[in-house]
């Protein structure tokens, strides 16, 4: 919890995501509870841990055979479970938004990046085309794109991965949402570019007082970037702890995950491997 958070932006209690398949029910998320304030909350886990499904459930983006249920799911005191699809859609992008992993697949390939940002603005705000363009150019500048005027007219295939991800962040932040969900926002990027993108994300989130949910598989990154970390495994939160205290994690899974990373400072002949205990999912 950070000092700046008064009332939580988001409250989740017993969130469940179930996929009803012909061969049975797959429980992607099983009873996850957390609150989000104006802070950087990390969700880490391996593939299949339900971390991305959690982000999608908050946005009402779970695809067809999936069913979301929760005892409580509130955004600033408003009950999300009682809302219809149309109201959820109004929230999406305007108040809660999401940055996806790969700019190559998430941007529209046949529209210039500038028009896509302007469109994102006009969907949520009454504005003339000119005003939307001006705002988009300002936003491109805010994500530290050097020549916004030139980049505005480029198509997604003409920009680099790092630039594409900045365009995505610009598009998601232009409506000024209160919550940003970033699902592996830098995994497709090189390390040096990754740090630039994180810096931009960090500055914008801090200066606008947003709540950030940062979904990642990279423990090192989450440890250095977030305030608080939820460790997920098999759809459950095994442990929630301050990012700085990740080294002192209690749960054997968290300790196992940290232990199996190769470390330049502590070279070992053999890396530790993880023994999974079925009791973790009980």
């Amino acid at each position: 919890m950070t000092a700046t958070s008064d009332a939580p932006l988001l409250t989740l209690d017993d969130l469940r995501v179930d996929f009803h398949t012909p061969t049975g029910i797959v429980n992607a998320v099983r009873g996850l509870s957390f609150t989000l304030g104006r802070e950087r909350l990390g969700i880490v886990g391996e593939s299949g841990s339900g971390k991305s499904m959690t982000g999608r459930a908050i946005l009402d983006l779970i695809p067809h055979p999936g069913v979301v249920s929760a005892r409580r799911m509130e955004f600033r005191g408003k009950d999300l479970t009682a809302m219809d699809k149309a109201s959820r859609r109004k929230l999406r992008g305007r108040h809660i938004s999401m940055v996806m992993q790969d700019p190559k697949f998430s941007l529209n390939p046949v529209q210039t990046v500038g028009d896509q940002i302007a469109e994102a603005y006009r969907v949520h705000h009454k504005a003339s085309a000119r005003e939307a363009k001006e705002r988009s150019l300002a936003m491109l500048e805010a994500v530290q794109i050097r020549e916004p005027g030139r980049v505005y007219d480029l198509y997604p295939h003409e920009v680099s991965g790092g630039m594409g991800q900045r365009v995505m962040i610009a598009m998601m932040l232009i409506a000024e949402p209160e919550i940003l969900i970033a699902d592996e926002p830098t995994s497709a990027l090189d390390v040096t570019v990754q740090l630039q993108v994180l810096k931009i994300l960090d500055d914008l989130v801090t200066s606008r007082g947003m709540g950030l949910i940062f979904i990642s598989h990279d423990l090192h990154l989450v440890r250095s970037f977030c305030d608080r970390v939820i460790v997920m495994y098999g759809g459950k939160a095994l442990e929630t702890l301050p990012a700085g205290a990740l080294d002192k994690a209690q749960h054997p899974y968290t300790r196992g995950l940290l232990g199996c990373l190769p470390d330049l400072d502590h070279p070992r002949e053999k890396l530790a491997t993880l023994t999974r205990d079925p009791a973790w999912l009980a």
Binding site: E46, S47, H217, L219, G256, L257, C260, L261, P262, E269, K270, L271, A272, T273, L274
Partner: peptide
């Protein structure tokens, strides 16, 4: 691969 699987594969290669 996930980090826990990565450790197993790296150990195997070593």
């Amino acid at each position: 691969l996930d980090v826990s699987i990565q450790a197993e594969v790296l150990n195997l290669l070593q």
